[in-house]
Every structure is written in structure tokens, then in C-alpha cells.
Amino acid sequence: MRARLLAFAVAVLMVAAAITIRGRMDKHHEDSTNPLRLVCSTELQAACEALPSSIQITYASAAETANSLSGTTPEQIDGWLTTGPWPEIVRERRQRNGADSLLTQSQPLGRSPIMVVAFQDRASVIKRNCPDISLKCVVELAGKGVWTAIPGGQPSWGQVKVSLTPPGVETSGLVPLAAATASYFGHADLSSTDLDDPGFGGWLNGLVGASRGDQLGQMVAVGPSVADFAITLEALAKPLVGAAANKPLLLYPSTVASADVVLGTFDTSRSRRLADVVKSSSVLRNAGWQSPSSAPSGLPPAGFLDALRAAWGEASR
């Protein structure tokens, strides 16, 4: 019996040793020839660049990665750092297609409110017409087409030009559009049938017509000739505006809506190790993202956002 116990103990030790050695071998292998692979959404590049160099990082638009992960042969990666609800969108798409859920969305790792960036003269007109900076109202201004149609607007400003990242491509465009849409309807509990609202199409078309794409960097560098104002995330705007010699103003809507950074992970040990590294780092805070919050983000659900993307695409044709 004693000999049998001893043999069992030795066997357990050997297995433990084998696991440890294998784990170390794996880790060594991971570090040198097979590093952990993270796909980082483009708008999070500043944060991802500060992650340990042992992680192999690829930058891609959220939509591009979502399309890859929604397909039948998703890209072989260990994690996806993006802004919510993209991993949720992927889960829903895969479920609709009868595929497994593939990835899990982490708790929020960072948060950024949605806001408006405008140079002083344009900001004054926005505040005059939309005192609480309601995004519904701000988008209505964009829909006026020309500044002469807006009280306080100057003829020399010409057409109303809005910097908004294409919502079909990046979260920094989709989330502000979603927040503005929630503002339009007065609540965030929306479903795709709400998009049939008779007034919504015209309101959306107004924004499509004024949108110049992602021009925030150029706008700060060159001035309002590029875009009169931007609807964007604080985390993207603050570093640019903070360093600028000619600072535009940051206008915060009274009804707060925020984007959350999340990590999409897979059910593998590599993915869990990657999650540990990412979650323990302070790269998001250093890049201007606020601490995560348990308060609701103020955004509509993932399924609605996917439908909203499609509606934007339709209106842009």
C-alpha cells in the first residue's frame, strides 16, 4: 500500500513536472517564435503601442476584424482589443448563422464619453442653438446644410462640415452615431424597427450629407476649413486638443453616452494569458481612457448598432 502510494505520488509529481516543463517550453516558444497575437482596433493604437513588445499586434478597423471573426474561418488570433459592442455584434452574427459564439467580451477596461469638438466661433453658435449640446440637436444643425440657415452662422463658413469617422468602419464613428440616435429617440432601449421612424431617415441623411469622414487630426492641425465640428470620443480628442497651439473647445452633451473598451477573448490558455497582460497594464489610462464604470454606457444594444451601421451604409449610397 505504501509502495503504491509512493508510486502514485511519484506519478503525480512527474505529471506536474511535465506540465510545468511543457508550460515553460510553451511560454518560451510563445515568446520567441510564436508570440501572443492581439488585434487592436485602429482607434486604440496609441494604447496598444505601449503594450509589451512580446505581444504581436496587428491594427485593423473594428469592422474588418468583426467581418473576419463572423466568418467560417476566423483569423487565428489570441485576443481583440476594441470598443464595445463589437465582440457582442460578432457573437450575435455567429449565433444568427448557427455558429458557435467563438469569443467572449470582457468587462469594460476603460471608458470614454462621446462629445463634440469645435473651434470657438462655431462652438458659440452650437451652444446658442443647442444649449445642452444634445446630439439630436447638433445633428439637426449639421442637417441644415449651410451655416446661413443656422442662427448665428456666418456666410463665409459655407457648408456645415462634420468630422465623423465612418460608422461602418470604426467604433469612433459607430458609437457617436449610436449616441446621437439614442438622443434622437430620447432613450437607448432601441430595436431595429425604430429605424423605420418617419423622421429618422431625414435626420440621418442630414448627418450623412455633412460628414467629411475622420478629419479630427486635420481639423486640429489646419482649422475649421476641414470640419466645423467633430463628434467623437473624448479619449481620441483630448490628446490632440491638449497639445494643440490653437485649441478647439470640448463640448459635453448633458446626456452622457460612452464607449467602453473591451477585450474579446477565446477559450484558450493563450487567450487567457493575453487577457492577464492587457488587463494588468495601464496603457488605456495613459492613452486618455477613463477608468471603467458600472454605470450604463447609454448606448443602444449591439443588435441595434449593427442595424444602424447598415442604415448608415444605405443612406451614404
Binding site: 463665409s156 463658413w157 457648408q159 475649421p224 476649413s225 497651439a245
Partner: peptide, 20 residues
Amino acid sequence: AVGSPISKAYGVDPGQPQTT
């Protein structure tokens, strides 16, 4: 910051253009 010689003294206007 944009500064001299981007000024009206040299025939240009730092406040322009209005549309890019």
C-alpha cells in the same frame, strides 16, 4: 502655432481657407 510670415503683411490670411 501658425505665425509670421503667414500674415496679411505678406498677402496671405492665416484665417483662410474657409473650406478644405
